[in-house]
């Protein structure tokens, strides 16, 4: 059976160009596309300056796009943003609050502005763990506490779509784990979460799908497993009972037409259709395999490959230096 997924967020061909008399034109978004389906935790990844925050700000009506189409919960935005904004909770970039108000006051004023019940304020403060510090001024908060307050403000509306830009920024390890659990719980309750983050390990753990952006364009998108599979080399790591046999084993495998890279204690083999053929070939020459494992890729390596931002020894990569992808 094929289930038709409902898109909560759709972006097509989004363009934004910043114009400055001194610095000229800079294309922040260059025909960017993204789809987030209902009930998912969707990771939004990209190097610094790739257009993530511009995308989120444009989506939320803070920036005027130069072209393209956006829709939230089936409503075209920014035209219908006032109609859907009550169902969208968002934090954009670093948390910014009036420093002389307490967390309680900050949320209470937002609740009033959004015509929400004041009852929600203590509820969300409890959820983000700020209950006991709620009456202190925001300026006394650490970055992590401000981040929690930002998440609380986004949750205040009990939104259908939650947009979080770097929510783990400044959080301690316990806080990061709490944030991960919170997102899982929210997703389980039916909320769709769009998560922009640089902590790729976290994204890989909690996200169902991802979109990767580089230089204002989408370079990869889809379920996390699919994106990883698409960029997996299909290689194998082969260890033998005796490391002394590695050169002989390499010779056998090369003769059969596969590519082999000899490492000090193992072989990296690629171009193999069936891993069992490696065992068979080597056993036929009295070379016995002690470990045969597929080489897996993680999101970090896929990200670095796709965005061309992997560090190179002796080079200092500049912020806008990323991989060009065809339009």
């Amino acid at each position: 059976m094929v289930c038709a997924m409902v898109a909560v967020l759709e972006i097509e061909g989004l363009r934004k160009t910043y114009r400055s008399r001194r610095r000229g034109e800079r294309r922040a978004l260059d025909g960017f596309d993204m789809v987030v389906e209902a009930g998912q935790v969707h990771g939004f990844l990209g190097p610094n300056g790739s257009g993530k925050t511009t995308t989120l700000r444009t989506l939320l009506g803070l920036i005027r796009p130069n072209g393209g189409r956006m829709a939230i919960l089936g409503q075209e935005v920014p035209a219908n943003l006032p109609a859907v904004v009550g169902k969208v909770g968002a934090i954009v970039e670093s948390p910014q609050f009036f420093p002389h108000f307490s967390a309680q006051d900050t949320l209470s004023l937002l609740a009033d502005a959004g015509n929400l019940s004041q009852q929600r304020v203590p509820e969300v403060l409890e959820v983000v763990g700020l209950r006991d510090r709620a009456k202190e001024r925001v300026k006394t908060y650490s970055l992590g506490m401000k981040q929690r307050l930002a998440v609380a403000s986004a949750l205040l509306k009990n939104p259908q779509l939650l947009i979080l830009d770097e929510p783990a920024n400044g959080l301690d390890p316990g806080g990061i784990r709490e944030m991960r659990d919170l997102m899982r719980d929210l997703s389980a309750s039916g909320m769709t979460v769009l998560l922009s983050s640089h902590i790729l390990g976290e994204v890989q753990q909690i996200c169902d799908s991802v979109t990767i952006i580089s230089l204002g364009r989408r370079v990869a998108a889809g379920p996390v497993a699919e994106v990883l599979a698409q960029h997996s080399s299909g290689g194998l790591r082969v260890r033998l009972e005796s490391s002394a046999d590695l050169p002989a084993a390499a010779q056998v495998l090369v003769a059969s037409g596969v590519r082999v890279d000899i490492q000090p204690d193992h072989l990296l083999v690629s171009g193999v259709d069936k891993p069992s053929s490696v065992t068979r070939m080597l056993a036929g020459r009295d070379l016995y395999v002690s470990e045969l494992a597929p080489i897996t890729v993680d999101l970090e390596s896929v990200f670095l490959e796709l965005t061309g931002t992997a560090p190179v020894a002796g080079q200092h990569r500049q912020v806008d230096q990323s991989a060009e992808v065809p339009a």
Partner: peptide, 14 residues
Amino acid sequence: HSGGMMNLLLWRPK
């Protein structure tokens, strides 16, 4: 300057 206005616009986009 403090970002309070931006927060408010996330709630009140008009």
